[in-house]
Design a protein around this nucleic acid. Structure first.
Lengths: 190, 190
DNA sequence: GACATGCTAGACTCCCCAGTCTAGTTCGGT
DNA sequence: ACCGAACTAGACTGGGGAGTCTAGCATGTC
């Protein structure tokens, strides 16, 4: 009999951690998974390890396909912008931060790995993309890494803060995204 | 005999919540304050209320004086930028977010108030400041509120994310601030 | 001196939870 | 038919924490 229930437990744990943070009890996770508590411990040695596994899954989800973008720079950036905003500002992206951040001091090495595998990796790819655009004369030449971080910062920085505090955003999403991308393009016009 | 120990409790609770989050026990707070547990409950009806009080104090600290800035726009923005980065990216600013954010779902009304009294108020003031600069022809005319949010976003957005995950920033602070401010000025040049 | 108030030490109740243990069930492989 | 692996329900242990209670101490006021 193969290990059938690992996935069920992981899914239940994810949803539970996302709504109640590390507070979620193992009993509750087992109940949500429709599984005995003992089964949870058959697959994961401790609550901490289960949590880490969930956190790894969650932070990987902000990564975005970036290759084979359209020729047009603005169209390419718009595609990234829409995708990143959707992932990061969506209910799950916000809940992920609320869940993971308070545990950072307890798992410093894991936290650095989470950043590197998620947002950090995106910065690297985006920097490479911007660097090519700079080489092609479509953008002013400057540190591409900084440009990437500035772009992502203006794209979601303040909206993320608002949503983390439970404050909604009124403006229409599509329009806002476009205005920010145009703002970036003006700042880095050749 | 006046209520001497309220402040001691508040300070101890602040430092305790900042390091261990809501996990901190009332016993520990009392111990840190050098005070009996009962004294804590004489001043605050419950741990939740004590926590709320601490959260209110903490989030007020991101507000920045903005009036009577220098005539020169760039100098004025640099002043805001330095002050905001220092508050938001400093160890205490980061710890504040790690402490407060996970509790947002439990205290939604409080959370909105915290945002409004801290970062939200700053956005309003900054928008007014930028609006004046637009009127004086020093900046391109555009929605000042959006401009303020974009400015703050590019200023701290990605660096805050990094620090929240415990990832340090290598570049020299002063230089980075200046580059971001210049980037904003280019984007909003008349 | 009498009294109220702010405080102290520490015990105590009640509840929750991580992790373990027991005893039994289901099911696939051989 | 039998074994072993995955699973179940539920009891149990040990620890910790919120909030209460008691008994007493210190100090300022009348």
């Amino acid at each position: 009999m193969p290990q059938i229930h690992r996935e069920r437990v992981l899914r239940a744990a994810t949803s539970s951690f996302l709504t109640r943070g590390y507070r979620s009890s193992v009993d509750e996770i087992a109940r949500r998974a429709g599984v005995a508590k003992q089964t949870v411990y058959q697959h994961f040695p401790s609550k901490d390890e289960l949590f880490k596994e969930v956190a790894r899954d969650l932070t990987r989800r902000v990564l975005i396909e970036l290759d084979a973008g359209p020729r047009d720079l603005r169209a390419g950036l718009m595609r990234v912008a829409r995708a990143y905003r959707k992932r990061v500002l969506g209910a799950q992206g916000i809940a992920t931060l609320r869940t993971v951040l308070p545990e950072v001091p307890r798992f410093p090495a894991l936290a650095r790995a989470l950043y590197a595998g998620g947002a950090g990796a995106l910065v690297s790819r985006l920097a490479a993309y911007l660097s090519r655009a700079m080489g092609a004369g479509k953008l002013r030449r400057d540190d591409p890494e900084l440009a990437a971080e500035i772009f992502l910062g203006m794209l979601v920085g303040h909206d993320r803060l608002k949503r983390l505090f439970g404050v909604g955003c009124d403006e229409k999403e599509a329009r806002r995204t476009a205005r920010i991308v145009d703002c970036f393009l003006r700042a880095y016009a050749p």
